[in-house]
Every structure is written in C-alpha cells, then in structure tokens.
Write a protein that binds this DNA or RNA. Sequence first.
DNA 1: ATTTTGACTGTAAACGATTACATTTGATTC
DNA 2: GAATCAAATGTAATCGTTTACAGTCAAAAT
Lengths: 338, 338
Amino acid sequence: MTNIKKVSELAGVSTATVSRTLKSPDLVTAQTREKVMEAVKRAGYRPNWLASSVKSGKSNSIVVLVPNLVNPFFMRIIEGIEQAAQENGYSVLLGDTQGKAERENEYASMVLTNRADGLIQLDHSFPFSAADAELAAVVPMVSVCERIEGEKKFPVIELDNYAAGRALSHHLISYGHQRFGIIAGQIASQIHHDRLAGIRSVLQEEGLEFDEQMLVGGSYQIETGIRGVQDLLKLPVRPTAIVCFNDDIAIGALHEIKRQGLRVPQDISLTGFDNIRVSAYMDPPLTTVDQPANDMGRRAVEVLLQLIKRQPLKRSREILPFHLLERGSSGPVPRQTA
Amino acid sequence: MTNIKKVSELAGVSTATVSRTLKSPDLVTAQTREKVMEAVKRAGYRPNWLASSVKSGKSNSIVVLVPNLVNPFFMRIIEGIEQAAQENGYSVLLGDTQGKAERENEYASMVLTNRADGLIQLDHSFPFSAADAELAAVVPMVSVCERIEGEKKFPVIELDNYAAGRALSHHLISYGHQRFGIIAGQIASQIHHDRLAGIRSVLQEEGLEFDEQMLVGGSYQIETGIRGVQDLLKLPVRPTAIVCFNDDIAIGALHEIKRQGLRVPQDISLTGFDNIRVSAYMDPPLTTVDQPANDMGRRAVEVLLQLIKRQPLKRSREILPFHLLERGSSGPVPRQTA
DNA sequence: ATTTTGACTGTAAACGATTACATTTGATTC
DNA sequence: GAATCAAATGTAATCGTTTACAGTCAAAAT
C-alpha cells in the first residue's frame, strides 16, 4: 500500500505538506507542489478514503432502502437519487430489503455505525429495530412516496395521491363510468389510503356508490392484476372500469381481460399508476398517472443533505405534481352496461 | 459521539477490553462481559465502522458499474449481486455511469482509494482512466455479460451468446423463415458479435444468405425497436422474422409492427432477449432468450470475492446456460412470402 | 514455599490521513 | 542591522478502532 508517508519521503517533505498539496494546493509553493505531485505520480498514490473519512467523521454515503429492485418505478427514483448524490459528492449504498424487517434493520444500522450519513426509505415501515429506535431519533432519514410509520415524523417526498385518485375518477366518470373496480397493491400503506380516499370522495360527490367487493389486490405485481381481474369479473355486476394502483398490475389486468375475450377500452376501461417505460407501448397504451420519479429521488437527496448538515427545513413534507396521461386504455363506457 | 473510550470509562475497563468483548467475547470473563455490555447499552454505543475499516484496510464494499438503471435486465443482475454481497457481509455501492467514461472513471477510482474492495462492471468498457490504468491492473474486477476491453483479461460471467444466436436461428428456420431482420443494441460490444456470429453460422450451414441491410439498431431501447422496424419494413424485400437483441427493442418493434397494420406472428415473427418481467404478458407474449440474470449477479460476486481474497480462480470465464422460451410472437412463415 | 502456567486485562502502538500549533525562512520595515 | 511579519513547512496530536505486547493474578505443580 502506498501511503502518504511513502510519498512524503519520496518528495523529501513532511506528510503534512503532502496532505496540503493535495487538499489545498495554494498553501504550498509552486516548487514543493511540483515535487510532491511528481512523487505522488511516481508512487501511484491515491489518498485512502477510509482514513480521511474516519478523521472527518463523515462517510459521504447514503443508504437507500428499497423493497425490491424489479419494480421499474423504484429504479427511476433511485436513478434520481443516484444522480443527485453523485452531484453532491455522495455515494449510494443500495439496500434491497425484500420487504423484510430484518434486512431493513441491518441496512438502517449502517447509519448508526458511521457507514452512511443518512437514509432514504422507499417503503413505509420504520426501518430500525426496536432496540435502535432511540438512537434512530436523530438520524437523518427521508422517505419517498410513502410516509414512515411511527410517532416521529420524518420528512417525506410524495405525490398528491388523493388528488391523483380524484383526477382518475373524474376522467373515468367523464366517460360515463359509474362502477369502478380497484386493484390495489400494498393495502397497509398511506399511498393506498390516499388514493382510495380520493376516488371515494369523487364517487360520493357524484352520488355514486362504491361496492366494497370491487376492491381487490395485494401486491404491486403483474400477477396481482391477473388475479384481480379474475376476481372482479366473477362478480354478479361487473365494473366498467378498473383502476390499478400501478402499471405492473395494469399490465397483468390487461393481459387477463384480453385472455377472457374482452376488449380494452371497448368493454372495460383500464388505468394504471407510475407511467413505467413500457406503458406507452402496450396494446392499447395505458392511461396512467405519471409520477416525477426522477425528481422525487433528486429532491429526497436534497432534503436528506439538509438534514445531514443540520440545516433547517422549510417544510417536512413535499408534494410533487402528477400528470394524468390519457391514453388508449380508457374510453367511453359500453352502451349496454351504462 | 459515543465512542469506545466512553464505554470503557462507564464500564471501568480499558478500551481493549471493550473491543474484545464485542469482537471475541470468549476472551473476557463473563463478569466483565456483563459490565461492558451493560455500559454499551447505557451509552447507546455502536462501533464506528469507518474506524474499524481503516484499521483492517478493507471496506467490505463493492462498487457496481451499470450503464443505466432503467433496463430491467440490469436490475435483475444487480439484485443477484446485492443478495450475494449481503450474504457475504459486503455492501453494494451503486454506480450509474450513463455510459459516460468520465463517470466510469470516477466510480472505478473508488477501488483505488479504498472506498471499495472490488468492482463489477456490467458494461464492456475498461472503466479506469488512462492515468489509472497501471494501478488498475491489480484491482479485483469482474464483468458480467460483456467482456471488458483491453489487453488484460478480467474474469467474466456471461451467457453463451453464440449458442443463443444459433438456437434462435434454428427455432426460426424450423418455422420456415429464411430472411431474418436483426435489430441490435450496442454494436461495439462482444455480445453483439457473438450473437450475430451465432446467427450467421446457422444461416451459412443452411445455405441461406444474410442480407447486411437487414441489420439495424443502435441502443437497447424501445425506440430502437420502433425505428428498426420502420427501416426494415422499408426494404424492397422484407424480413419474415425479426430478431431483437433485447426485449425492450422487441417491445418497440412489436408496437410498430402492429401500428403498421401487420400481425405478429402471422405476418412477421419476432424474438427478444432477456425475458424481462413483462415479456410474457405482451400481446402476443414474446419468444425470447431467458438469461439467468440473478445467478449471473450472484456468481459475479462469488468470483469477485475470490479475487479480493487473492484466492486462485478455477476459470476466468464462466458461461451460464440460457433457455429459449418459445412463446406466441414467433410462428410459421406466412404462405405468400415463404 | 517457590515456580510455572494460563487466563485475563491493561498499555500503547499501530492504521492513514488531517490539522492545530510550533518553527523556520525570507522579505520588509524602521 | 535589528525587529517585525507573513508565508511555508514541520512536529505531533488527533479521529475511533484493533491488537501486539506486557503485566497481573490466582491456581496448579513442584
């Protein structure tokens, strides 16, 4: 290992001078600077990052907790996180928790051991173990999309899911739909409640009943969409429109609806959430709620860095705008069932 | 900051004893163990990971270089990497390079500065800058899918792309196809050459000509598929089957073929690569080459750890098996063009 | 009773950088 | 020419651990 000592000997100066040459070159003469740089080159020296970090007490890393990596929506968020982190000189430790508390604990404790300076949580659970809860109160932590459970309120970057639910409802109602099926993902989360509340509020305003049997789901996966459609189409009175709480579910739903010989949107309208890459290229293209995933990630990093630097936050909750993308998968309610 | 000193004072022992209690408990008496653990708890002490690491000289981190995060195939690999890393006590630093050499340099140099112990490259370029090339010769580095360019041969985990190309060709030829269109991704890579060579070899064996105009492409994206189909269908003699070098391209191609009023597979057969999640739910489901992405990631970590621990490798190139998934997007060649 | 043994613990030197403080150097001022 | 000052450099302490080495002490062996 070539260390600063070796370089200092090669250059015939003290270690302090070498460190100064590299960190703040204007503190040394041009002459020594040259000597030192030459020695650095000759030795192939790169400063040991671990050593600098232990001195500064900062790791310049953040850890990102994500329930899974296959959901393309998460990846867009992480992409934004990664970019913003990199721009600010931070690196990203990837923590795939698979939704398991044990794994969350393990990754979260990285912040307690100085392995990372802060934490971004993409899921809704409080990631620390009960034993660490007290220590966790002061760690810089931000959540994206979901709000973190527990008494203490951590900053959150989220979408206006309530308004999105309302927008979707208005869109479908404008096409004459009155019976909505909903295929949800994780039922326990705040997202779920907000979207559902948004949809319910519009239905109520319009004097429409929501049949609780029309709410199915379980996880944000393609298979949920398939099973969801199977369940919904078994009902005595079928929905004329199905709202899926993400695009993966919608893709599964679309597949199953077509497999049962029905057409989208002529027989059933279908909507998604997230606007993942492939949504626009489905047959028909999916009507969906576009979320500014990249921005959400970027913003999460900015807020987290403020927490890390102990700077005051303007607000502890940021709500980013969505866009309802009306595409081919939603249309007028069919005549015979209207 | 609660450090080991504070704990040692609380417990009335030396720092050495505290360290021993936590690292190798059987070196201390049950009595002191109890005292120390009590003090640890009372102080809310967690050992500083940075300090341990600087002592051991190991960061227990690996950095993964990935050209982009939106490609779901990469994410499956990274998922495998993350799992294997976690199981071995390593953490993963995510390096989204966006294919830019500058970013690759930056991330790659993490290994030179002890920020990471090893490097997994998902792209085909040699990630170090020219200035670092000499130092890089000894860093533990493994590539997945692609082979890293340059004189020095780094271990690689890859698919038998040549055989996959052959398998696809045989599949299509068995359906009577004779004119293949190919929509490729990154032309410069080894993958590209291997697949193409596989396809060419079968065509040659079967006495079929490959029209070089039938090879189009540029990047592994949906849009490439769309433009690719547009180009291919402009040709005076159209292909009866189109081989896409990943599923995203195939999805774009499928979309565009249908948009032009043609049917898959009745008018044109279509195949992909990677078997991404949505492939099976396209209309029609995509015939594609399933790559064991998760395994590739896991295996890459195992090999990398051997390099890090300076253990001898059995082989420097591992080829994992693929499966040709025959689904609805490929079928018999149409009568009139056969 | 003395030595030997082994288990346990403490002291202090690492790891590789950064930096407060001290010292040297050379130029400037009177 | 002595005094003053600023700039450049060196010395050594520091960050929070780990660990080689040295010491202590009680039990076992002679």
